[in-house]
Design a protein around this nucleic acid. Sequence first.
DNA 1: AATATATACGCACGACCGTTCGTATTGTCT
DNA 2: AGACAATACGAACGGTCGTGCGTATATATT
Lengths: 217, 217
Amino acid sequence: MTTAISDGRRVRGDASRRAVLRLAVDQASLSGLDGLTIGTLASDAGVSKSNVATLFGSKLDLQLATIEAAREIFIDAVIAPALAEQHGLARLVAIVELWLNYSESRVFAGGCFFRAVAADASAKDDAARELLVAIDEEWYVFLTRAVRESLPELPGLEGRADGPEVLAFEITAMLDAANIGSLLHRSTRGYALARAGIRDRLLALGAGSAAVSRLVP
Amino acid sequence: MTTAISDGRRVRGDASRRAVLRLAVDQASLSGLDGLTIGTLASDAGVSKSNVATLFGSKLDLQLATIEAAREIFIDAVIAPALAEQHGLARLVAIVELWLNYSESRVFAGGCFFRAVAADASAKDDAARELLVAIDEEWYVFLTRAVRESLPELPGLEGRADGPEVLAFEITAMLDAANIGSLLHRSTRGYALARAGIRDRLLALGAGSAAVSRLVP
DNA sequence: AATATATACGCACGACCGTTCGTATTGTCT
DNA sequence: AGACAATACGAACGGTCGTGCGTATATATT
């Protein structure tokens, strides 16, 4: 009589899945989706290996659930707070600052989850890669829209049909470079360079200095 | 009587090492330094597993040799041809174009070798990571010097002490973003965006349009 | 109350991992 | 010529991987 999805009974199981996934996203952000192993995960979570296996069915399903969990954490850390800002340049600047904070504060132990697993996944050809591609396109749509909504405050971008796309590409590039640099060199220099580079870019496009004041090291 | 390094006898062994390493760099560029396995490598090379093991001593030494081999291939593909260009903006533009070609033509099967293995290695704490950090710093020194030698042709960069460093960071960021994008999305769109972004950036800094004419999709 | 479902466990399987033996062969040096 | 070092191989080691099986328990549905 109830719907096919009967969550009532699965309260215990969902709690277990959530606890395992919280460890999984950190482990995957450090070692990639292949470095994510059921045995290590079970040991860290204090449960049996076969339990983790039955909870997620297969390794691939575990990877997919891990990616989805990381996506929700990312939304909570960056997307949702940015949407709380008002339209326009203020939101665009907020996205940049929130993203840099998301990377620098190590919401995931290995920095940005999606950059950490992209290298491993891009060489494969399974559902995990497809999901990551979809999430990446989702990000570009979100960021490009934020740029487009800032056009009135970025007069330098007028008359260029691909202006928003190029700027979204440049911003993403610098965010990723800051993330990678901080992981590889174990310093915060990349974050300062990204803030300086993006701020200069926005100022060159005619942004008001007050609007970009959030982007200072 | 001869030097301690007697390469004469090792001709056969060196040839074997080279053949294995040529496969190793491709495999590592696709699967990372951890995905590089002695068994698969031996199978692909048509030799025994124990042979590969004895040729390189240990897994770590194999990884280090693979990184060194990739470094030399990268130098041949990008650094050396760029140094053949004259000083200044021409060389800087050549570096960008050579790098994009190096990534797009898949000199390594998995795109840029160093970006592919950086994710896995940055979470570890061994000699492989140190070597990759040193190579990355080597790259930044090289690129920053090329920017500095272009200062007379980039008047927009005057008066900014950290100008060359920021520009080198931005260029590297866009090159990496093009590389990652082409691998994840399996399209060449990222390369066009990187060429457009870097060209616009150089033009905005006062570069002559002739000097950057190489950067067109 | 009876049945079905979802956790959770222990156990074992085949496969692959990196490493290490013993051994044969080849090339280099004294 | 003889001693020595470097390839190359086959075989086996302990370890971990993902997966499947049987079983016990707790919850939900009938």
